[in-house]
Design a protein around this nucleic acid. Structure first.
Lengths: 147, 147
DNA sequence: ATGACTGCAAAGCCTTTGCACGCAA
DNA sequence: TTGCGTGCAAAGGCTTTGCAGTCAT
């Protein structure tokens, strides 16, 4: 899923953190760069693996702390693809987003997007009793490799 | 969310379990009846609370085991509304189903359904690279009481 | 010097598993 | 009698928290 670092998002994130009063820190920066190299949801433990093989060593606790902070600033989205593990992915500035297909067999996660689906969601949200702020859609089944 | 026991579903479930070779058991039966009294997703621990105040005492492990078995027979759906806790709800025989709105503040879960949304989902599923078997939609925001 | 950032280890939570006992068939 | 069903306690897996040392400002 790595597709080249999204440098623009890294800059945005560092800037937003600075504005929010955070100081500089190597662990957090490493987490940000690891996130920037993924185009779709990754778990905290996958990030830990990424970082273990990189030059910087980052403690698991620091990964979770950084993810919490980034989520609070809406720089990352927390995604629940099931089985009790949370995943995280970059939030785009323009609100653009995708959803996920998860393979029941191998766990592979693949993103997709669909305008008509988004419109249907918006229509439902507008008519709902809740004040809806976000939505999450997960399709489950078998990936091409497993089916 | 309790709305009277769904006796028909209880019968279906007991029958399906029998057909699948399961024997009778008080704990499992109690779990089934607890599930039948809810119209929307409940967690295993909420079921445990229900059962604690009922006449039958059911161990936590038995609740999880019963839920696993019921899910395997597709008598209940496992739903992930986030925060690492799984929820479970009755599966309707006719495949009818609903989705969920979750309150970010109080955690309240409310069901909704929408035909147009289902059609949009089906269209995406049909065109996907995955062989999609299920889908799950969660809207997040504030419930009427919290907003 | 002050307070934020980090690593390590311990604690927390939900869930699963191992084992011995009891009940259904 | 056989083996499934159950309760209890322990173990697992992911996440959070406490604390002391380190680094940025």
């Amino acid at each position: 899923m790595t597709h080249g670092l999204d440098r623009e998002w890294v800059q945005d994130a560092l800037c937003a953190l600075h504005d929010a009063g955070y100081q500089k820190g190597g662990a957090r920066q490493a987490v940000i760069e690891a996130l920037a190299s993924h185009d779709c949801a990754v778990t905290a433990l996958e990030l830990e693996d990424d970082l273990r093989t990189s030059e910087v060593a980052v403690a698991r606790a620091s990964i979770y702390r950084a993810l919490d902070q980034l989520e609070a600033l809406r720089l990352v989205h927390r995604v629940d693809v099931g089985r009790g593990r949370a995943s995280y992915e970059r939030a785009e500035r323009d609100g653009e987003h995708h959803h996920h297909m998860v393979c029941d067999r191998c766990g592979r996660v693949t993103p997709f997007e669909d305008g008509r689906l988004e419109r249907a969601i918006r229509r439902v949200s507008d008519g709902a009793t809740f004040d809806v702020k976000e939505h999450e859609i997960v399709l489950r089944g078998l990936c091409p490799r497993c089916s």
